[in-house]
């Protein structure tokens, strides 16, 4: 395998808090690699260090074959979309794109083939100011700007935060196509459901990588049994559910509570009758497959002890 990014023992602290604690991983060529973790997990800091925008306290990385010290070489080989990146709202779509092309020493014409597929959707609005685009359009334009200099490795820091679900799906489909052209993509997101779109994901929490595996493997590795429960009185349910035998932990997931069970053979009927005794109505109990989110919660819990 041809490794495009190899990070070894990267550590970074801000005053007393450790933003990154001995982080190591590697990403292969043409891989879509996801970093999944809550806000403040250290995703942005990691991306900043790998794009040489920030210095690590210790550790090193090889990005497209260059050490972090080799800033100029790395900078001309990576594309980077910062987390809060929002283009220049007073410049038009075309002007934004041309500006980034010029600054990176290229022209839009030269590398048009890379962005063509995405840019055709923007073309009807090319004279519109970027500030007047919809959120999804802005995201596409930002992606074009990050791609225009033909980078070998693309870093996208929470590209789908604050974007509507339809645009989010479109965005991930675009990443999938880009990957096929051989581009290596590192993407971070706080949304667990996006993990399944990645080839491999790293679960990151408090500056530590908890696990790295393909999303399917992570969920299969999960040793416990998850039951989703719902009733008319969710607040009461949260308390009552702890009375269920073998319940290890409870988390809220949308309209359901997910209970991880210690044993696999617990029955849904048993839980349902117990809840009925407690006066719950409209009870729904079902066994579900553990998702990335469940794994993450479990790993987090596990990591604490």
């Amino acid at each position: 395998m041809n490794e495009r990014v190899i990070a070894t023992n990267i550590t970074k602290s801000f005053r007393s808090t450790k933003a990154l604690d001995d982080v190591s991983f590697s990403v292969n060529e043409g891989e879509l690699f996801g970093f999944i973790g809550p806000d403040g997990a250290g995703k942005s800091t990691l991306f900043r260090i790998l794009t040489t925008v920030m210095n690590a306290d210790s550790g090193d990385a090889l990005v497209d074959g260059f050490h972090l010290k080799d800033e100029i070489a790395i900078r001309s080989r990576v594309g980077y979309m910062p987390g809060k990146f929002s283009l220049y709202p007073d410049l038009s779509v075309q002007e934004n794109l041309e500006f980034f092309a010029k600054v990176f020493g290229t022209t839009v014409q030269e590398n048009y083939s890379i962005i063509k597929e995405i840019y055709v959707q923007l073309e009807p609005f090319k004279d519109r100011r970027a500030g007047k685009l919809s959120g999804g359009m802005k995201q596409k334009l930002a992606l074009c700007c990050a791609l225009i200099h033909k980078p070998r490795v693309l870093f996208l820091d929470e590209p789908t935060t604050g974007v509507d679900p339809v645009s989010r799906r479109e965005f991930w489909e675009m990443l999938g196509r880009l990957k096929q052209s051989g581009l290596t993509i590192l993407v971070s997101t706080p949304y667990m459901d996006e993990a399944s779109r990645c080839d491999r994901v790293a679960l990151i929490q408090k500056g530590k990588i908890l696990d790295i595996d393909p999303p399917g493997v992570i969920t299969k590795k999960f040793p416990l049994h998850v039951i989703a429960v719902k009733s008319d009185n969710m607040q009461k349910l949260r308390k009552d559910i702890l009375k269920v035998e073998d319940a290890e932990s409870v988390y809220g997931f949308g309209e359901f509570l997910h209970i991880t069970m210690k044993k696999e053979n617990s029955s849904t009927e048993k839980i349902e009758s117990l809840l009925k005794q407690q006066g719950h109505q409209h009870i729904e109990v079902k066994i579900i497959e553990a998702g990335i989110e469940d794994c993450f919660m479990h790993l987090m819990e596990h990591n604490k002890n």
Binding site: T51, I72, R75, M81, F85, L87, Y88, V103, F104, G105
Partner: peptide, 13 residues
């Protein structure tokens, strides 16, 4: 504020 400076930092400027 808008993160464009961070994007420019990665540029050869």
């Amino acid at each position: 504020e808008t993160g464009t400076l961070e994007a420019l930092m990665v540029s050869p400027l």
